[in-house]
Design a protein around this nucleic acid. Structure first.
Ligand code: ZN
Ligand code: ZN
Ligand code: ZN
Ligand code: ZN
Lengths: 140, 140
DNA sequence: AGTCTTACTGAGAATAGTTATCAATAGACT
DNA sequence: AGTCTATTGATAACTATTCTCAGTAAGACT
């Protein structure tokens, strides 16, 4: 009898630190880095260790409570996504950061197919589309 | 906040180091990081300083001799311009990390379509598929 | 070929973002 | 209250990249 490990199943405790970080994320639509969130918490007189901020955001991203992408500058930035339900993807402007939520069966089916063809199970995927939006292109 | 210098205006000398780095890039269609290129040069018994590799690649990218993108892992990776044949995606086992390279027109077309529908230009994308490979699943 | 200018180089220090370590703490459950 | 263990905080370690600066070598011009 073997135990199946599923990261989304591990018990997550509701700590003061986790709640504080979540509140920051819920207070904006923008992507925020771990460092930024740590500073914002300091301003609110909430002392949360930097390592805790990193760990919590990382875990939230794995459990799909928040979205994580890599900025052009190299930092991982996080956002509580407006669309709370359902798997989906993002179309992001490299210039101004405006983000459009997109989804559709095409990639979902394609990734499933590719994974199955290679004998993989418990499949998931990440996909982000980047470009220059109409507005920014006009200004350039 | 850093001061931006226009590197395209300064004279570029053809040094042994620059030639060696260019040869590495011309020897493959894949994206390579500065660290990887530095190791490859070592294997060819060419001693080129790591800082020089970083500086040279950075300058080549600014002068648009090569393409530079940020990998999901956070590194800047470089490729000799032109053909997009090197573009592909990864199917990664969450357990053992084994990685399979995959590609196909399906997602390429889909992402292009989605971006165009939303008025985006200069489109790029990132996609990774995760799962449990046959081997690891059997062991579990 | 010799000389001059200055872009370029290498080694290491410095920086930025992130992850690992580990003893102490505090949720959750009986 | 007591137990179990996920979580925390301070800091060390790590990875990728940039900076510093004295020494080197393209390339231009005699
Ligand atoms: Zn989203
Ligand atoms: Zn834009
Ligand atoms: Zn595996
Ligand atoms: Zn693609």
């Amino acid at each position: 009898m073997s135990v199946k490990v599923d990261l989304t199943m591990v018990k997550t405790r509701s700590t003061q630190q986790r709640v504080a970080i979540l509140q920051i994320l819920e207070g904006t639509d923008e992507f925020r880095s771990a460092q930024e969130i740590h500073k914002l918490l300091e301003q609110k007189k909430l002392k949360v260790g930097l390592a805790t901020v990193y760990r919590t955001l990382q875990k939230m991203a794995v459990q799909e409570d928040i979205d994580a992408i890599r900025s052009a500058h190299g930092e991982i930035i996080y956002r509580k996504c407006g669309q709370k339900e359902g798997h989906h993807h993002h179309l992001i402007c490299r210039q101004c950061g405006i983000t459009i939520t997109v989804d559709g069966p095409t990639i979902e089916n394609w990734t499933e197919k590719i994974a199955k063809e290679n004998g993989f199970r418990e499949v998931s995927h990440t996909l982000d589309i980047f470009g220059i939006c109409k507005n920014c292109y006009r200004k350039a």
